[in-house]
C-alpha cells in the first residue's frame, strides 16, 4: 500500500506537470490582452505597453514558462495580473466556499441518491420504483442554472427561508454558513443525486441476482437482512466509484452554481480569470482543480481497498 501511494503520488506530479504545461500553452496562445481589460476604455498604447512590462508580458512565452515553472517549484504560484494579489492567497480565500459547496452537495447527493436508488431497486417494477426514477431523472436532467433560479425564487423571494446569494465563511460565521449552502448544494447535488440514484438502483439490482444472495436466502435470512446485510455493501462498491466521479465533477463543475448564487469559489474565479486573461490565476486554479480531482481519485481507490477485501494494491 505504501509503495502504491508513493507511486500514485509520483504519477500525480507528472500529471500536474503535463497539465500545467498544457494550460500554460493554451492560455498563452488564446488571443486576448489582460492589459486592455485592466486599463479600461480610455487606455493608450503606452499605458498598455507599460502594464505589459509590469506584468512581464513583454517577454517571450518560453521565457515566461521557465520563469513560472521555476517559481512554481519554490511554491510561488505568481501574482494575479488583474488585481495584483498573490495567486496562492486568492485561491486559498476562494477554496473554502468551493470545498464546502462540493462536500455538502456530495453529501446531499449521496443522502438523497442512495436511498432513492435502494427504494427503487427493492420495489422494482412498482409505482414506487417509477416515482423514484422520475425524481432521479428530473434531478439529472434539470439544468443547474434553471434549478438554481427556481430555488431562489421559491425559497428566497416567496418564502424568504434562505438568502438568495452570497456566502458566509465557516470561520467567521459558522452559524450562518449552512443557510447560504442549502440552495446551492441542492442545485449542484440534484443532478448527481439523480445519477447516483440510478447507479445505486442498477448496481443493487445486479447484485440482487447474485448467487451469494441465493445462498443468504437459503440460510433462512429475512429479505430485509438479505438486502441490508449482503446486497447493499456489494452494490455500494461500484456505486461508490460513481460518487467519486461525481465529487470530481463537482469540483470542476461548480462554476454555474457559484455564479448563480454569487458564491466566491474557485469555479467562479476560474471563469472570471479566463474572461480577464489573468494567466497566473487560470494556471493556479486549474492546477488546484487537477490536484483535487487527482486526490479524490486516489481517495476513491483507497476506499475501494477498504470496502472490498479483493482489492489489494502493491
Amino acid at each position: 500500500m505504501g509503495a502504491f501511494l508513493v507511486r500514485r503520488l509520483a504519477g500525480m506530479l507528472v500529471t500536474m506537470f503535463i497539465i500545467s504545461t498544457l494550460v500554460f500553452i493554451i492560455t498563452n496562445v488564446v488571443p486576448g490582452s489582460p492589459a486592455a481589460l485592466i486599463l479600461g476604455e480610455d487606455r493608450t498604447p503606452d499605458q498598455v505597453e507599460a502594464l505589459n512590462r509590469e506584468l512581464g508580458l513583454d517577454r517571450s512565452v518560453p521565457v515566461r514558462y521557465v520563469q513560472w515553472l521555476g517559481d512554481l517549484v519554490t511554491g510561488d504560484f505568481g501574482t494575479s495580473y488583474y488585481n495584483d494579489n498573490s495567486v496562492a492567497s486568492v485561491i486559498a480565500g476562494r477554496l473554502e466556499p468551493t470545498l464546502m459547496l462540493t462536500f455538502t452537495s456530495a453529501l446531499l447527493a449521496v443522502a438523497i441518491g442512495i436511498p432513492l436508488g435502494i427504494i427503487a431497486a427493492v420495489y422494482q417494477g412498482t409505482r414506487l420504483d417509477y416515482a423514484s426514477m422520475v425524481v432521479a431523472l428530473m434531478g439529472a436532467a434539470l439544468p443547474n442554472f434553471w434549478l438554481g433560479l427556481l430555488l431562489i425564487l421559491l425559497f428566497s423571494l416567496y418564502w424568504s427561508v434562505f438568502p438568495a446569494a452570497g456566502y458566509a465563511s465557516i470561520f467567521d460565521d459558522p452559524g450562518d454558513t449552512w443557510r447560504y449552502l442549502v440552495l446551492p448544494a441542492i442545485t449542484l447535488g440534484a443532478s448527481h443525486a439523480g445519477v447516483i440514484a440510478r447507479m445505486a438502483r442498477a448496481n443493487l439490482l445486479e447484485v440482487m441476482g447474485a448467487d451469494y444472495l441465493r445462498t443468504a436466502r437459503s440460510k433462512g435470512l429475512r429479505e430485509r437482512s438479505v438486502v441490508l446485510g449482503h446486497a447493499l455493501r456489494n452494490s455500494m462498491i461500484p456505486t461508490f466509484g460513481v460518487v467519486g466521479v461525481a465529487l470530481a465533477l463537482m469540483i470542476g463543475g461548480s462554476i454555474v452554481t457559484e455564479a448563480v448564487f454569487a458564491i466566491p469559489g474557485v469555479g467562479r474565479l476560474l471563469i472570471e480569470s479566463v474572461l480577464r486573461r489573468d494567466f497566473p490565476m487560470i494556471q493556479g486554479v486549474i492546477l488546484l482543480i487537477a490536484l483535487l480531482v487527482a486526490l479524490v481519485n486516489l481517495a476513491v481507490d483507497i476506499v475501494y481497498a477498504l470496502l472490498d477485501p479483493r482489492v489489494r494494491y502493491a
Partner: peptide, 12 residues
Amino acid sequence: VFVPELSVRRIG
C-alpha cells in the same frame, strides 16, 4: 456584493 447573475441581483 459581487453578484454576477443578473436575475439574482434582481431577486436579491
